[in-house]
């Protein structure tokens, strides 16, 4: 039976989809069978980050409605064959995703995969609530920035009250991923410190992902950052996070961008 993970944040644009793709790919490369699911309705993102945008035939709403069976909607990744994607619908309205329908699809996904990673949309409305409802584990993505931290806190409150686990009186395992971390701004004191964020949110830290142009580059190319350039700092941080999720003890470190000789030569990276 699978572990269901939700990647959520409250605030938009902090790195949920990037994290979903990176963690999914890292886990799949380690031999696990993984399905990443896009829970947005109306705005489809995960397929673009995964590079599968040209192959989308059926989406989550098609499966919920019975227009298609789950295997027909799943898109296998061309690079790692234990990695699959269930895309979101681009065109239909949010009421098309019924509670019962989603529950049924989640059950089916649990039977087929080791890991089901749900990419939550931003906000606290239906899409976000549906994405978190069936999760066993939550990964809360936060930037070291005030509104992101407060929105993450709100989301943590919802994780503790509006999920199946909460309804059963069980505590959901929650982890923090701090993204867009800039070591130089931190040194200058221009950025919320990691300890401050942890103190306010009070959930354990899974990883610190440094700000990096590699993330943008990977999304340009349609490839999860852990597959595109496994040696870059964010990829290594995500790989460590995946290992921690599997239960391994990995000491926390802040991977620093290794400047290559040619990088220094050209100074400015052309994205």
């Amino acid at each position: 039976m699978a572990k269901v993970l939700v990647v959520t944040s409250g605030k938009g644009g902090v790195g949920k989809t990037t994290t979903t793709a990176a963690l999914g790919a890292a886990l799949a490369q380690g031999g696990q069978s993984v399905c990443v699911v896009d829970f947005d309705v109306g705005l489809r993102n995960l397929d673009l980050i995964m590079g599968a945008e040209r192959r989308v035939v059926y989406d989550l709403i098609n499966v919920v409605n019975g227009d298609a069976k789950l295997p027909q909607a799943l898109i296998k990744d061309k690079r790692v064959d234990t990695l699959h994607l269930l895309p979101a619908s681009q065109t239909r309205d949010k009421d098309a995703l019924t509670d019962a329908g989603v529950a049924r699809v989640m059950e089916e996904l649990r039977e087929k995969f080791d890991w089901v990673i749900c990419d939550s949309p931003a906000g606290i409305e239906r899409g976000a609530q549906l994405a978190m409802h069936h999760a066993d584990i939550a990964v809360v993505v936060t930037n070291p920035e005030v509104s992101s931290v407060r929105d993450s806190d709100r989301i943590i409150g919802l994780l503790d009250s509006k999920t199946a686990k909460a309804e059963k009186g069980e505590e959901m395992e929650k982890h923090l991923i701090l993204t867009r971390y800039d070591p130089s701004r931190a040194d200058r004191g221009d950025m919320l410190k990691t300890e401050d964020v942890l103190d306010i949110l009070s959930i354990p830290l899974l990883a610190i992902i440094p700000e990096s142009q590699e993330v943008l580059r990977a999304s340009n190319l349609g490839c999860p950052v852990t597959l595109n350039n496994p040696l870059c700092a964010p990829a290594r941080a995500y790989a460590d996070a995946a290992r921690r999720l599997k239960g391994e003890e990995v000491p926390m470190s802040l991977p620093v961008e290794r400047k290559s000789f040619l990088d220094k030569l050209f100074m400015r990276r052309a994205a």
Partner: peptide, 8 residues
């Protein structure tokens, strides 16, 4: 017992 989160 725990914390009171934003919005609660």
């Amino acid at each position: 017992e725990g914390s009171v989160r934003s919005g609660q």
